[in-house]
Write a protein that binds this DNA or RNA. Structure first.
Lengths: 214, 214
DNA sequence: AGATCATCTTGACGCCGTTCAGATCGATGG
DNA sequence: CCATCGATCTGAACGGCGTCAAGATGATCT
């Protein structure tokens, strides 16, 4: 039997150590933050020797990539849920943007790993772009649905990139406590997010009417 | 003689080791990237023992903060130069934004240290906000000058934060090679930057006329 | 059963950040 | 001019890190 160990059965030496390591890494990230995420700590948490991970990942970076992949998946799901929350095409981008930043706030360590992995790479992160319902594709298709088929692909792509920049930038800035008084005056975290996003062209409803997303 | 050792003279123990260490760190960053920036490597580069830095910095983080401070200073200067390049108040924000992203592109390792240092801190990075001509204040004053005195402070602050988010997000995304074909069709790097920024409310000229920066 | 092969452990290497006792040497004051 | 002082730097050490090579383990195949 090749496939087993999806549940509690532990058919072999460890079972599905690969998955166990990724889970252990996520647990450490949630509980102790990114600075505590050493390969040895992950192995310790999974109950194996420090060298065991090397039978499933080429090096530490590859393990982190697997963790990041899970993160992009979870982010994509959060964005899907946010998008489906409203049928108004013009409001969807804002909902997605808010969901994005909130995700980064609820899983700050995971979010950091997701971007640390993708830096110094030639491509967009694996899992951001591949599947139909990936995070990136969702934003692009939302823009496409709102803009209509007559808008050029390049403009849709630019709008998608711009929205991504805005959301990521806001996600990083949002952790500064310096902004707390400002947030208080704007109805808390979400009010602040929506206020900033409204400055950032995340309201295609008010921009596209004038000159289109291009 | 207190001040010496700017050139080849090494008058005593070391001279101004603090500055020498910061310079060594910057050299390593430029030549080998952030992953090579260990305290021991910095000490090696400066020609001292691994323990020497501890007489000038509490730990590695404090040395990195000093490096980051230099970075924010240089960024502020680049933004000032960009701002003074045009007298048109409406166009200044775009010039500043382009200069910001270009700085992050010319000094990617330094830029990374600047933000890595400021993460998990309660305040904005030291050197970003303090002085009159700091990077952050320049953006805020540019918005203020453009919007006029009747716009509320909170709106100016929000616009500043939004612009900062946009610039930082774009700075991080800009390194993805995936966007190279897109850039080619938009007149190179700078054309791409301006195109994305035009989606991100960095053109107060076209936005503020409608509803003000608020 | 015996061979095979992926999996896991043990032990080691060099590098890291950090600490501490002691050496070094300008400055101070008698 | 000499003794002392205090700041600065060195040398050696500690534990933790990523990684690797060699050997033990045990599931699977014939």
């Amino acid at each position: 039997m090749r496939e087993a160990a999806t549940a509690e059965v532990r058919p072999y030496h460890h079972g599905d150590l690969r998955r166990a390591l990724v889970d252990a890494a996520r647990r450490i990230l949630e509980n102790e933050g990114p600075s505590a995420l050493s390969l040895r700590a992950v192995a310790r948490e999974a109950g194996v020797s420090p060298a065991a991970p090397y039978h499933h990942f080429k090096d530490k970076g590859e393990l982190l990539e697997a963790v990041a992949f899970v993160g992009w998946d979870a982010l994509g799901e959060a964005m899907t849920a946010a998008k489906d929350r409203t049928p108004d095409l013009g409001a969807r981008m804002t909902e997605i943007g808010v969901a994005y930043v909130q995700f980064s706030q609820e899983h700050p360590a995971l979010y950091r790993v997701m971007y640390d992995c993708s830096r110094d790479k030639d491509e967009l992160p694996e899992g951001l772009q591949d599947k139909e319902d990936s995070a990136y594709c969702q934003v692009r298709e939302t823009f496409r649905a709102f803009a209509g088929p007559e808008v050029a692909d390049v403009d849709i792509e630019l709008a998608t990139i711009a929205a991504w920049c805005a959301a990521h930038g806001l996600a990083e800035m949002n952790s500064f406590r310096q902004f707390d008084p400002l947030k208080q005056g704007l109805g808390g975290e979400e009010g602040f997010l929506r206020a900033v996003l409204s400055h950032l062209g995340m309201f295609p409803a008010s921009r596209a009417k004038a000159n289109g997303p291009g």
